[in-house]
Design a binder for these strands. Structure first.
Lengths: 214, 214
DNA sequence: GTCTATATACGGATAGAC
DNA sequence: GTCTATCCGTATATAGAC
């Protein structure tokens, strides 16, 4: 199914060239620790390359970071975009696809959500408006479907963003709070991942119930 | 109502002593930028004190941070604890109290959720287990209520953590994603806050619908 | 307790040999 | 392209006068 595949982890580069080694290492370390806490030396060590090569290929820590950040954001968005704008599926199957795709993505890259959200906090407007979340989401087919349902009276007449927030909250929150969740539930990583997979089937049910709340 | 007051912003210290000035400034800056991105100079400037005084009172940046972090976590938890362990209220009114209290708290201190979650990522086990989330939550009255409902068949038989995650997701997620939300919704801070206040009444309804999902 | 001046360490970045 | 050696700004922390 093309929908099922719409959200995908970037196929891990095979670390052939030095440039790719650095980029993959940078992605890993930045995602884990964020920009400020990351030292270029950490990246060089992770990539098993000489420190000087980092500047040779990417000029500065900041420029390297910007590349990683932009790609992470795009991964986030373009995945979403494919599903949001599929004109052939109804609301319910969009939710299923989103839950399914994002949960798989975050299981394979668990640091991405918190990374994106916390780095976005400090680089405020420039990146956000450059990515143009607004245009993308508001003009999406999914948003039109929600608004149509509201007009028909099938869905309570509140700001559609509430539904988006709830859906993303149900998908994303467990991953950003995973250290606490694992501690409370006495879970190892595999148990946690298993629980997230369970949620793929549950989220569409909850979402449907929520939509019908009058 | 005592319940309504259970979650409260720490009353802002009046910045009398130098020590309090530094602590309040540190709290503000750490919450905004996180540990790594914060410079002791930022804190000194914010507190309008001489840089050397920071070390005089708190020995090091790290020790000062640990104090702020611990207090932020405690604020988080003890607020929750009061409601979770109120034996005189049913599940529904606990949800209302939690949504009400936390949303007020986060409107007044919007940086706290992302701060706590992102700093917890790096200081992994020590703080989490020191706080003992597990004992607190698993033995809470609210957890017992959920388990009782499951046994009665009133609630689907899935791990109670799913419900906790959904509830906290609905409350917390909008705040950690607020830059994106505000951009998408074309909102200023006041509009955003207003929308969060709306959610106080909506979350209990959604939660109830979710619980009844079979 | 509060200030100025400074020691010390660390991290990003570059020069220059190979 | 890759290495070693090193420069230099910045940030934490302290010494010591007041």
């Amino acid at each position: 199914m093309k929908i099922k595949m719409a959200i995908q982890k970037h196929t891990e580069k095979t670390d052939t060239t030095t440039e790719e080694k650095i980029k993959n290492a940078a992605k890993k370390v930045f995602h884990q620790k964020g920009f400020a806490a990351t030292r270029t030396r950490d990246i060089a060590e992770e990539a098993k390359i000489n420190l000087a090569l980092l500047n040779y290929y990417f000029r500065s820590k900041k420029k390297l970071f910007d590349i990683i950040m932009l790609e992470s954001l795009q991964q986030f968005l373009q995945s979403m975009s494919a599903i949001f704008n599929d004109t052939e599926t109804d609301l319910a199957s969009k939710i299923s696809s989103l839950a399914d795709g994002y949960i798989d993505l975050f299981i394979s890259e668990p640091d991405v959500p918190l990374f994106v959200l916390s780095e976005l906090r400090n680089h405020p407007t420039d990146l956000i408006s450059k990515m143009n979340f607004k245009e993308f989401l508001l003009k999406s087919h999914m948003m039109k479907q929600i608004q149509a349902e509201i007009k028909l009276g099938n869905i309570p007449n509140i700001h559609p963003l509430h539904f988006i927030m709830n859906m993303m909250g149900m998908i994303v929150f467990p991953f950003v709070a995973s250290p606490i969740i694992k501690n409370i539930g006495n879970m190892e990583q595999t148990d946690f991942d298993e629980m997230m997979k369970q949620r793929k089937a549950l989220i569409p049910l909850w979402f449907k119930a929520m939509l019908n709340t009058k």
